[in-house]
Design a protein around this nucleic acid. Structure first.
Lengths: 209, 209
DNA sequence: GTATGTGAAACCGTTCACAGCA
DNA sequence: TGCTGTGAACGGTTTCACATAC
């Protein structure tokens, strides 16, 4: 691995490459060139080579990349070889969907706990998880070795949920609430905000009306 | 409006500004400086001024921006003054959550139709919408004046769903399936892919293990 | 011959710094 | 005086182009 600073966006693309390489593998493709993969992923071939170049040399000149091997290497780089333990806070519409989201399990992510404010929801079973009260968070997060907290609670309560997670010793947060969370700098926060994505789409449609 | 090319990322930030300005307005704040808003949004003050500068002059030198007025202007720029009509395909876990997602309605987005492959789900009511078979798509999209198609169906069927939407005359797609859709270039596609976001989080956690 | 790996160049977005104006 | 609006400087990412290796 090089000591150069690696652009975050390059890391995000690795995830895209891994997924499409896995599809190629399923189809029985054994070797692919950067041009071939670039075509599938909708990016520039040089970009793929440069992105991979941040982490090592995985190809063979004049040939390309061995698909199986490259998937393995990228998953290793991203840290996806291990099983990641997630906990959810906010078992509403979106939260329930995330608990049952098949895609997560396929990739090695497992929800091991879920928390709620609303007493009516506590005790229910959603996707093999029994919904617990937020006050149980500190204990359960430690007990179950949760590493990543997922916030799918309303914006009004998202910051409190984040604070609770931080207090319980979580290392990263995936935040679906449309708010800017205030967190200690050693904690990693990634935001998913599809209202903003939808707004951007509307801008484009309005522009080319 | 300037004729310079406007960075897509600047447009995405406008959405962030609008949301935080609306919150300020709710709190009774009437005027805000770029520095004040930048603080809330977690960006550089100059960036806010530059982003706004792409679209006009909305502030008063020595004073700042009138909150109400700026919200209005940004929403106008983004095309959020009108009601947007959405249709969903894929009424599974995620799809159902989207149909019931309160945040959408607040912002002027309305689902007017929902489609499914699975016969067991057809005819059900989800968030005031009756789930229809995919074969009804062409007719209903036209009948109800749907402008944006939302894809929350499995990756295996996402491309087909997109083709159907295109055939029915949709103008934009919000795609939650983790695949690169092949679409005509005059169609606008925005992707929401939280598995990739989660992968990026894992990379960070692995790096600082 | 062919495709990778990688410096160099081009490009784009962000931040600075200050002129302009209330 | 204070803050906006904006050209210029800066920094980072993308793309090019070619030496290198199979």
């Amino acid at each position: 691995m090089k000591s150069v600073n690696i652009p975050a966006i390059a890391v995000t693309r690795l995830s895209l490459y891994a997924r499409n390489l896995a599809l190629l593998d399923q189809k029985g493709v054994e070797v692919v060139s950067s041009a071939g993969l670039a075509d599938i992923c909708g990016v520039n071939p040089a970009q793929i080579r440069k992105d991979l170049g941040y982490f090592g040399q995985f190809g063979i000149r004049g040939v390309g990349y061995y698909v199986k091997e490259l998937v393995y290497e990228i998953r290793k780089i991203l840290g996806l070889e291990k099983e990641w333990r997630l906990a959810l806070v906010g078992v509403g519409n979106l939260g329930s969907a995330l608990l049952r989201h098949a895609q997560f399990l396929d990739q090695g992510y497992t929800f091991v706990a879920a928390f709620e404010r609303d007493p009516k929801r506590i005790g229910k079973e959603v996707g093999n998880i029994t919904v617990a009260p937020i006050r149980a968070m500190n204990r359960l997060v430690k007990e179950k070795g949760v590493e990543i907290g997922v916030i799918a609670i309303g914006p009004r309560w998202a910051q409190q949920a984040a604070d609770k997670f931080v207090g319980a010793g979580i290392r990263g947060i995936l935040n679906f609430a449309p708010v800017q969370l205030q967190c200690p700098s050693d904690l990693h926060v990634e935001n998913v905000d599809f209202t903003r994505t939808l707004d951007r789409l509307c801008y484009q449609l309005t522009l080319n009306a």
